[in-house]
Design a protein around this nucleic acid. Structure first.
Lengths: 333, 333
DNA sequence: ATGAAAGCGCTAACAT
DNA sequence: ATGTTAGCGCTTTCAT
């Protein structure tokens, strides 16, 4: 079906190579009738341009990378990533870009693959997700000339990024609990070396302080965004007898619910819970979760679109998009 | 850091372009001292070959594709995919291949992207996952000259594939329930247009028949591998008062447990459950799940390795790998 | 063992 | 509006 070249199409259509190239790339300066004829031949033959030849001559690959540095393995299993990837692929498909996936399992892999990611010119740009603050890969990547959009809030404020307003999300969650009359409000945070972990914890503190309450450090337990981590963090919290917990992800909440069940505590009567994400499973939990919804798919799609905008019109000024969250009230609070 | 070309490295090392190329590609016919000198220069300069130029001249891209046709969106959120992707990326990283991800959200996208996947020569080969039986994309793909390994059991027996023994897995699960003295054993199947759905259901039937029991069609409820689907299927099963259920995926089991809780039925006392996958969450459920473990990561890695074997030594004979499952007994049975 | 040279299939600047 | 031409950076015969 296809090892035709531009040259052959040109011959079949009785025009030059350049004209075919112009048609393929949608340039304007081609007479409609000629364009028509060429398109006809292309359709009949099933001609498909050779990607490598195009990249070589044209200096762009139409490929972008999704880079996920050193996720803890169980963390990547969070449906969060699947949803983000769905948004990313959808945007790529729509804009005729191909997505390459770089998932690193160790620092050694990061180091080994870094040159290939930035040096082999096989990527026009990169979406960087779920980076731990201070990961050397990110630092290097942002310092390189490779166009890059971070999903999350990078330390480097000159970087382009797409994020949800995690501080506001955390604030809203805790405010909701306060409004319900809860006062012994604990939190299970995400990893505090991620921006999402930090920011949601910040929102928790802000809300308490806004209501004249102090943050008790023992009421703040760090989790790791996994179900097992949520379970353990909740167990550490139980002796403190909180009447509510803000948990920084739905997945951790599933683990925390388990710990509460084992302790014989009912939700929301004994302990109210608000969590974060609104995964598809959140509505199906027992009880259904009150949770701060973030638009995960759109986050992924927006990251791609932001990257494409940078590819079109240059890296400056950095593009920074903050998306809103929305509190979804269900049975757990 | 890098827009060096082979030519420049050659000059710096005082050799010809060809020699540098030989060193880069590990050919034998280079004097050790020369090789050394060239490698030195490469290391010092951080030279990285240009991927597109290489592909164009060398006829191979060192990129493979992971193609997932038309998943229902919520299905892709199953941690199963994350785990498989982890195995796939790990194998790719190890063998210096890049992975491109093609995730289709509609038949229109499949049709639009098919020519790019097989025609643009940007892929050396393809791993095809989670295909529905009879999906036109698969038919076309297997008919094309693109080297391909299916994860699952394709209809076309001439295709190369990697799968777990789903029939045996289902059999073992149900046999376990029979051994516990259960007799009213129902099943919630996967989608019956997938090979995994079909085969696990087959194993269920085989086990019943082996014990002299007949399959009652109303005890077989089709699910869709999602939690919501499991919930609904279990609700349909409740009026039939099964004393055990074999559920074809852990994710569906989470939904089914919810339905049982709402009905006030205890697991395993009133209803015993065996499911399939052994996701990380399975051990944390209430109760912990008895489940048929399948080596999801290794499945992904093996698919890649099988594909690379085909790339090395041709498509025939088709390579077909069947991996074993293992029953993990926990609290739900 | 090494170098010279001919492409791989395309884009884009230039010429017409 | 269209054709001509010079690369893009590499691999791979073919000489030597």
């Amino acid at each position: 079906m296809n090892s035709l070249t531009l040259e052959q199409i040109a011959e079949l259509a009785g025009v030059s190579r350049s004209t075919v190239s112009r048609v393929v790339n949608g340039h304007i300066s081609v007479r409609p009738e000629v364009r028509q004829r060429v398109q006809q031949v292309i359709a009949e033959t099933g001609y498909q341009p050779h990607a490598a030849a195009r990249s070589l001559a044209g200096q762009r690959t139409q490929v972008i990378g999704l880079v996920i540095p050193r996720v803890i393995q169980s963390l990547f299993a969070d449906p969060y990533y699947s949803l983000m990837i769905q948004g990313i692929t959808q945007a790529c498909n729509q804009h005729d870009y191909t997505l390459s996936l770089f998932l690193f399992h160790s620092e050694a892999e990061e180091a080994k693959l870094f040159p290939r990611v930035v040096g082999a010119r096989l990527l026009d740009g990169v979406v960087l997700a779920s980076a731990m603050v201070g990961d050397p890969f990110i630092t290097q990547l942002l310092a390189s000339p490779m166009p890059c959009v971070v999903v999350g809030r990078p330390q480097d404020e000159a970087a382009s990024y797409v994020d949800v307003d995690n501080v506001a999300g955390g604030y809203t969650a805790v405010q909701h609990l306060l409004n319900q009359g809860r006062r012994r409000i604990a939190t299970i945070t995400g990893p505090l070396n991620t921006s999402a972990g930090q920011d949601r914890r910040q929102g928790y503190g802000n809300a308490l302080r806004a209501h004249g309450l102090a943050v008790a450090e023992e009421m703040v337990q760090e989790g790791d965004f996994t179900e097992a981590g949520g379970y353990q963090a909740m167990q550490r919290l139980l002796p403190l007898a909180p009447d509510a917990v803000f948990i920084a992800s739905d997945t951790m909440t599933f683990g925390a619910l388990q710990a509460l069940r084992e302790a014989g505590l009912t939700v929301p009567d004994a302990v109210a819970i608000v969590s974060f994400d609104d995964l598809p499973m959140a509505a199906l939990a027992t009880p259904p979760l009150t949770t701060v919804r973030q638009p995960i798919r759109r986050l992924g799609a927006t990251a791609v679109e932001t990257l494409l905008a940078i590819l079109r019109s240059g890296p400056s000024p950095p593009r920074q998009v903050i998306m809103a969250t929305e509190l979804v009230v269900r049975g757990s609070s």
